[in-house]
Design a protein around this nucleic acid. Sequence first.
RNA 1: GGGCGGUUAGCUCAGUUGGUAGAGCGCCACGUUUACACCGUGGAGGUCGCCCGUUCGAGCCGGGCACCGCCCACCA
Length: 874
Amino acid sequence: MAEDRLKTLEERTRYEPADVEGRVFARWDEAGIFHPEAEGTPDENFSIAVPPPNVTGNLHMGHALNASIQDLKIRVARMRGMRTKWIFGKDHAGIATQRVVERQLEEEGLSREEMGREAFTARVWQWVEEYGGNISRQFRELGASLDYEDERFTMDPDYVRAVTKVFVHLYEKGLIYRDNYMVNWDPGLRTAISDLEVEQREVEDTLYEIDYPLESGSGSITIATVRPETMLADTAIAVNPSDERYSRLIGESAVLPLVGRRLPIIADEYVDPEFGTGALKITPGHDQNDFEIGRKHKLEEITVIGEDGRITDSAPERFRGMETREAAEAVVADLREEGLLSGTQAYVHDVPHSHRSGRRVEPLISLQWFCDMEGLAKPAIDVVRDGTIRFHPDRYAKQYLDWLERIRPWCISRQLWWGHQLPVWYRGDETHVGEEPPCGEGWERDPDVLDTWFSSGLWPFATLGWPEATEDLRAFYPTDINSTARDIIFLWVARMVMFGKELTEQVPFTDVNIHSVIQAPDKRRMSKSLGTGIDPSDLIHGGPRPPVYEEGGEFPAYGADALRFGLLAMSSSQDVAFNEERVKQGRDLANKLWNAARLILLRVADVEPDAAAATTVEDRWIVSRLERLTARVTELYDDFRFSFAALELYGGFWSELADWYLELAKPRLYEEENEDVSAVLLWSLERVLRLLHPVMPFVTEEIWSLMPGDKRGLLAVAEFPVADESRFDEDAERELGRMIEAVTALRRYRDEVSAKPGAAVRGHLVADGYDELSDHVGRLARFEWVDGSDADGDVIASVPVPGGAVQVLPSDAFDAGEAEARIEKKRAGLVEEIERAERKLANEQFVAKAPAAVVDEERRKLAEYREALAQLES
RNA sequence: GGGCGGUUAGCUCAGUUGGUAGAGCGCCACGUUUACACCGUGGAGGUCGCCCGUUCGAGCCGGGCACCGCCCACCA
């Protein structure tokens, strides 16, 4: 066992993630550490409900980042001994999934209409069974410690019951109602969508000016529109009441061209006299604003564009059945012929489009189900205001609050087949809403399904078995953290809070983490169709670089740890361009760690890790530094500042443990069987592994398994360290700080005088504070100390080091002539520094007003520079 | 139109109580020193977007401007 262990270490000079990750994951899996018992209370337990990915999807970079963040939090909690549940599951994603399957059908020459609802949904289920597994495989690749044993789906029977119950509850409370109202109609998907599913896109339109003849026959009134075809549904003309140009016309009527309808001319403050002609055609059936004006003035609502996007029978015969674009052209042509088109101009403006299909949204009046949100929003506002729920970064709280404070009714019905069908039945004029179908004959169920976000809003508690009072719910609800991208703060986060407060009377989580959006390397959006998307799996296992990388080629197999490190290190509170260098840095870190472990584990004596074995000043130094690193990293993890944590770990391990301590420990490690240094080395390695494990679980677990001692168990459930401040050692840190400075100065000197790489430079160390460390300084800087400092005649240079100087003696390591030039350069630098400090201290204002500590520090530096200069000239 | 971010070394980004600007990569020079070339050592490189102001002192605070990005919003 021990021999196998050492053999592995001996042979592998490089860390190969591909050989390790699958095996390590299997160990976690088999140990069952991802699946907690449903015991204890939410306060002592820790839980996160993963944002459920769409069943249709593959994990993209955003998922990989978010998984890294959540897994980090989960692993820290688990290592702190908490019972930890990361709730796993997927979302049925109504529109997205239905579209995928529909497209597949189209390829087979089929359509869902031909198949019928039942056969179609069966087909979707079949698809879900077949492809839904990808996601959990990808999460496993990343090392995500989700509770895979307990997977949820938003279409599970239990989940469907929960959704139904919520619908009925809100209906009975009067918050859910059915109404004929203006909705955003997606003509591509043929369904209503909510306001949040609409995005504004800039469109170049033509603004037409059309003359509407006055009924009196005395002239006409000119309106402007970008959608001439909607004039077929005009029912009024509006002007601003204060607009003197039109005041005499208010109460008169105009005649709608091509149709002949009489249009009253009304006054409404909404109309901007400055825009266009100052007269506005009112089309309550096809414009959101006009709809509201129409309701206010009790105007007729005419629908000339149907749900199929074609002109309806309410329009004159010759336009019926036309697509809107075609109708617009026909209307314009007719107007031109009649001489009623008085002008056209190019016009660029923002137009609502469906986020899903990309089609221009058609505002229509439609009979839909709505949920009144105002009452639900209030408690959701309060819990953020009073700090029960905290956002990280906190500026997102403002966005959340702004939206909730201006919330509008939510259109929740969708004309789809895949999803939660409304628990609503009709028979003649009767409506039945209930968890069970109505009794009696002749009832027909509403064919619509709910907006997917309605069911997503229940995620943190429905996954735990709500509305039943399950053990899971008792143990893990409320959850601790919700981590998402900011584009679903309203769609999802706010709704979970509203539903959570309404239905469970608790907040669904206490912390909301909003992570960066990872953009493509060229700062465009990552997208498959643009060729800017990067598949996380390709970074883990290696794979082709997407087109956004002009140099092409393949990604190396960086491994999951590298990807996790890279994503965490590059993310912050800002959006960030994907930076392959960070992933590379992660890979290098894993490799460096592996090799540091090789050095340590192949050489140490058979002892227990022990910080108390620190005897020498460098031992006390590394212990102190790692305790401080522990304190910093812990704070950063807890404060959701993951990139800082990752970079602190990188720097702390690499530039302190690896670059300095390991070099300082080598003599004792090689030349003697030193138990003290072994204990400190093992302790140091162990400490780094524990701290780094939440970021890089695989390599740390692997090295952990190679450490001596048979009863170590898994690092994933080992104790997360708590910084021991009693081991902070300022004396040791000061001393080592000076030593590092000295070594660096001497190395620089060697470089400047072009000393031969292998040869030692002879010299006297004439400085205080190196009692314990002079050998180290000599070895690391390649200086050979000659006893005494009285051979004045031989000294050819003096290199200032903290506490004194090193007098350089002639040797065959370098050409003495080089030394002179370098001394001059150094002297000039010091003189400059001295002048700067003197100038500052000569400023009476500075000395008088700056804090004493700052002034003292400046004086100290000045003294130091003067001493160094004196040394140089001695 | 409103709101929120950003503008710091060639690149990607840090800089949390105002006190002589940092990291990684890249670049230059040197180096096969018995963990690691996915390495080591040393070095070069910045008028901190622009303008005012507060201060002994501003990348950091206040005011204004410019450009980039995102969110929200019903100007035809």
